[in-house]
Design a protein around this nucleic acid. Structure first.
Length: 323
DNA sequence: GGCCGACCTGTGAG
DNA sequence: ACTCACAGGTCGG
């Protein structure tokens, strides 16, 4: 059954939102529609200028079920937030944003599941998008419940923490080429169980941002950057700014020139950058910054505009000291 | 407190 | 075919 909700494209641009580095379970099917998993269901999504159309699997027929699903979709998209209002506010606050906003319309910050985001971003460190996606798929396939078969492919829910805490997970994931992240995943799952499992996770959303972040950093494989991703994308702490290498470069180039001499991002600098963007963009700084940095994402590099900054000599370190 | 190298793996440029 | 750097970092010394 196909349903639809009114949702102008200016409020959601599926390509930028689903492919922008915040979600790793969306792909475009052979029919050209987005297909992905959230809220324990498989969703097919597509849009025109004014509506989002969707189908849910396994299909439900009763009207009450579909009303329920509309709510789930709206929560996932944070439909209560007016993106046009946010864009107006951010544009007023920052000239760089004003420019980026012309190109990257409809970038929403999704409200994703904390468990999935925690383990997805543990995988993200020092890694590339393709492999991160395949790792998320593997975790789901190994330990997640089967949800539905769509177009000949079986989709799985993301596993529970309890499943990921099982001792066999370490060797399973090592065999599946997770590398050093296998240990982080299994150990973090265990620690979350020790801390109280889902209740501990629920508490993270209620805690103030900085306290939630401090809790997350207790988990192995989670440092400042990954903790901020988790806060921003799944815990409603929209002021969290994940400072990666790109953000650092841009911050030093356009906002905080004195950082140009820094060799690496220390904790102090990390916080300085976050605080700066929070002072510029306000309470939803993390969301705003994600629009700003769309331009830095590989997937969105416009090959027709030859204005790519050459990566050039930002790293003149010739330290080929091999044994 | 800051800096440096090691770290699993897959991929793509040279 | 075969290095080698790099990829949304984290950890330990």
């Amino acid at each position: 059954m196909i349903s639809k909700i009114k949702f102008p494209k200016s409020e959601l641009h599926c390509d930028y939102t689903f492919n922008g580095g915040q979600a790793f379970r969306w792909k475009i099917g052979s029919d050209g529609k987005w297909i992905g998993v959230f809220a324990h269901r498989v969703w097919k999504l597509w849009q025109d200028d004014n509506f989002i159309f969707y189908e849910v699997y396994p299909p439900k027929n009763s009207a009450s079920a579909s009303a329920d699903e509309e709510t789930l979709l709206k929560e996932y998209l944070r439909s209560d937030e007016s993106l046009s209002d946010l864009y107006k506010d951010w544009s007023k606050r920052d000239r760089m944003f004003e420019e980026a906003a012309k190109k990257f319309t409809g970038v929403r910050m999704l409200k994703q599941d904390p468990v999935e985001i925690i383990f997805t971003f543990i995988c993200s460190s020092n890694n590339n998008i393709t492999r991160i996606k395949s790792m998320v798929d593997k975790m789901s396939k190994f330990y997640g419940n089967e949800i539905a078969e769509v177009d000949g492919e079986t989709y799985h829910d993301f596993p529970t923490v309890e499943k990921l805490a099982h001792p066999s997970v370490l060797s399973d994931l090592q065999k599946a080429a997770f590398g050093y992240r296998a240990k982080f995943i299994q150990q973090s799952a265990n620690k979350i169980m020790e801390f109280g499992g889902q209740e501990w996770i629920n508490r993270l959303e209620k805690l103030p941002y900085k306290e939630a972040k401090a809790e997350l950093i207790k988990l192995p494989g989670i440092g400042a950057k990954v903790a901020d991703c988790i806060c921003l994308m799944s815990l409603n702490h929209l002021e969290a700014i994940p400072v990666d290498t790109h953000v650092f470069q841009i911050a030093a180039r356009y906002y905080l020139p004195h950082l140009k001499t820094m060799k690496s991002v220390t904790e102090r600098v990390y916080n300085e950058i976050g605080d700066h963007f929070r002072s510029v963009f306000g309470d939803y700084a993390g969301w705003g910054h994600s629009v700003l940095f769309c331009d830095e994402l590989k997937g969105f590099k416009d090959e027709t505009s030859g204005s790519k900054r050459k990566k050039s000599q930002t790293k003149e370190n010739r330290k080929c000291s091999k044994n």
